[in-house]
């Protein structure tokens, strides 16, 4: 149970750090990274919530998986947009 608690606290800590970064940083790459950290923090919280006395529950794990898929797609879109913004700045 101690390890569960440690996971929960570090997940919540990551979420807070990421939200702080996202709110204060103007750098595009920093914000993409912030979003990734936020998603990882949330995934950690979800995975801890899946662990119970009678084994693990598959549903939060499926949520996490969906979250990862969405994150990969959105990160790709964000990086493409950031590149286009930089190109438009150079012109």
């Amino acid at each position: 149970m101690i390890s569960d608690f440690a996971f929960l606290i570090s997940g919540a800590g990551l979420i807070c750090l990421a939200l702080f970064r996202l709110a204060t940083s103007a750098d595009l790459l920093m914000r993409v990274l912030g979003l990734n950290v936020l998603a990882i923090g949330i995934a950690m919280v979800l995975l801890v919530s899946a662990r119970g006395a009678e084994g693990t529950d598959a549903v939060p794990q499926a949520f996490t998986l969906t979250g990862i898929v969405v994150l990969v797609g959105v990160t790709a879109a964000l990086l493409a947009l950031a590149e286009r913004v930089a190109e438009a700045r150079d012109e």
């Binding site: 979420i15 919280v45 979800l46 919530s49 949520f63 969405v70 964000l78 913004v85």
Partner: peptide, 24 residues
Amino acid sequence: AFDYLTAGLVGSLLVLLGIALSYS
């Protein structure tokens, strides 16, 4: 569009966290 996507993703991650918590 970049700002929109960032804000939208933060929004939907919060929704996801809420949904997972409501499931638990």
